[in-house]
């Protein structure tokens, strides 16, 4: 029983878990739906081992879901950084980066809020009693590990560099000529959004300047902190936008490489 409805502690005797009259259950429901759908899509795609690279066409789009492509099963043109992973069906080709990206988002301060509310119901909404008997939060293992967020941030920043590299080399066609199509626009937009999301991270905000006590002694870091703080205010929006942009980018490249439609080309 939640203490909210437990009058033995001297609290007012009210048996309802909440007296809220608005649709407080809607945001967690939408979160379950949104995050759930995305996870299903991403899981399917990560293990598909196909349609991740435009190997049939002259241009070279690589989906971020398969970058960096370290498996010996990868198309050689897609492996910008070498191949050393074995090609097993249960091992994603990007098995080095994907777990860290997942952990980066799992430990993200925004996603934590979203899934603690939506999946753990802890709490389902403000002033709505949660179903759990006990609650220890992030005081002990495994949730204590949420404190590792900043290390995943560092790694995510490295992976963003890789994604940036992918987006740049996608301008070079397989025959070495310059190419530019809708796919490039999507890849670049996705990378820009990924950077914005990564830079808006709360850990980033702390590392850049938040940990300082005397901004006045570090004018440059204070300025950067101010900019990161502005981005940080949009962290939730960026978290969702990048989920969407990742899925759209991946789906677009899948569609082009599977030949469902062609990439509208502007140059080359």
């Amino acid at each position: 029983m939640s203490s909210t409805t437990d009058a033995s502690t001297g609290r007012a005797q009210i048996s309802e878990r909440t007296l809220r009259t608005d649709r407080w259950w809607l945001p967690p429901l939408l979160n379950v739906a949104g995050l759930g759908l995305w996870v299903i899509y991403a899981t399917v795609r990560a293990f598909m081992h196909a349609y991740y690279f435009t190997n049939e066409q002259n241009y070279s789009y690589l989906t971020p879901f398969y970058s960096p492509c370290f498996s010996v099963g990868c198309y050689p043109e897609a492996s910008h950084f070498g191949q050393f992973l074995p090609d097993w069906w249960w091992l994603p080709y990007a098995a080095i980066s994907l777990p860290f990206l997942l952990l980066f988002r799992l430990t993200c301060y925004y996603y934590r809020k979203a899934y603690y509310r939506a999946f753990y119901l802890s709490p389902p909404a403000c002033a709505v009693a949660e179903p759990h008997k006990k609650y220890t939060g992030e005081t002990r293992f495994p949730l204590l590990a949420q404190n590792l967020h900043r290390y995943f941030f560092y790694i995510a920043a490295l992976i963003s560099l890789v994604n940036t590299y992918d987006a740049v080399v996608a301008f070079i066609n397989k025959d070495g000529s310059f190419g530019f199509g809708l796919g490039n626009i999507i890849l670049v937009a996705n990378v820009v959004l990924l950077w914005l999301y990564t830079a808006s991270c709360h850990s980033c905000r702390s590392i850049i300047g938040g940990r300082l006590n005397h901004f006045s002694k570090h004018p440059l870091r204070y300025k950067l902190w101010g900019q990161v703080s502005i981005l940080n205010g949009k962290h939730m929006q960026l978290a969702w936008t990048t989920l969407a942009s990742l899925a759209i980018t991946d789906f677009y490249i899948m569609a082009v490489s599977a030949g469902w439609w062609g990439d509208p080309r502007i140059v080359g």
């Binding site: 603690y116 509310r117 002033a127 609650y135 939060g137 992030e138 005081t139 002990r140």
Partner: peptide
Amino acid sequence: HGLGYCNITKC
């Protein structure tokens, strides 16, 4: 002071 109990659900 129990900072670890906070699961940043922002209420």
